[in-house]
Design a protein around this nucleic acid. Structure first.
Lengths: 137, 137
DNA sequence: GTAATTGCAAAAGATTTGCCCCATT
DNA sequence: AATGGGGCAAATCTTTTGCAATTAC
């Protein structure tokens, strides 16, 4: 039988928010999405942005990332499993492929029974910020 | 020459907080540490707990973990690189070894210049909560 | 017409901070 | 005695929520 199919409406606000997410790779915060959305919908409220981000997250259409050194969550709408890289110098965040070894569930079987989700965040410096790679450079 | 050596005092509060972290594997929240500390120091304040956790973090003696489905950070004082597993059923959090492939810096060299820290959080069910492993079980 | 969704503003929750006093050094 | 750190309370910041009005269906 079909899943209960959550009732939802295609509001302009929701479409604009999803569109913003789809057109950026910057992993914006709710506030950032709000400011961007205001360009199209000058009356949209921050609460609506949060509500829609939560809705989209529930639908599997958006993902929330919690940075280490920033107090606000960031969001993206890349639904393929992936990791994130956060440059501590320019604060830029980019997607990273998830290492294959993490896809397989080769975790300690004694304590982990089932893996639902793998959240991997790498902190460091991006190529633009630290042109000469090397330890302690 | 010696590093500037941050001035700090061995207060009873700081010692108690560090002790609590060292004696548990539960990855408690600041609030949890606060309640535990009150058993020894009935007048300790939550602000002091936060200030000390931040201090210890700065010293590399404590680590902050931001769970996915809980609004409060959790803390541990295991200074060896490691990952975390969070059971979504019982909310228990345990340490996990960091897969060796993540220790090496075999990330996309084009965008990542230097890796400082790898934060890996695995979500799922622990053995106690889901005795029969298997997909969608 | 019905009810999901919005805007607004207030509330909630977590963490930080100012200030004055106390305790470690 | 000097000053880092504590207690308390207020402030800050992010996210959630109640409610009346709106709008997609």
């Amino acid at each position: 039988m079909e899943p209960p199919a959550i009732k939802s409406r295609n509001t302009r606000q929701r479409a604009v928010i999803l569109d913003i997410l789809r057109q950026t790779k910057a992993h914006p915060t709710a506030e950032g999405i709000y400011h961007e959305a205001r360009k199209t919908l000058p009356n949209i409220s921050l609460g609506t942005v949060y509500r829609n981000l939560n809705f989209l997250r529930g639908q599997g259409l958006a993902r929330e990332i919690r940075p280490h050194n920033e107090s606000s969550s960031r969001f993206d709408c890349n639904s393929h499993p992936h990791a994130h890289f956060h440059c501590r110098q320019c604060n830029g965040m980019t997607d990273l492929p998830l290492p294959p070894s993490l896809g397989a569930s080769d975790w300690e079987k004694e304590r982990v029974s089932r893996v639902d989700f793998v959240d991997l965040l790498v902190l460091g410096s991006c190529a633009g910020c630290a042109p000469q790679p090397g330890p302690q450079n």
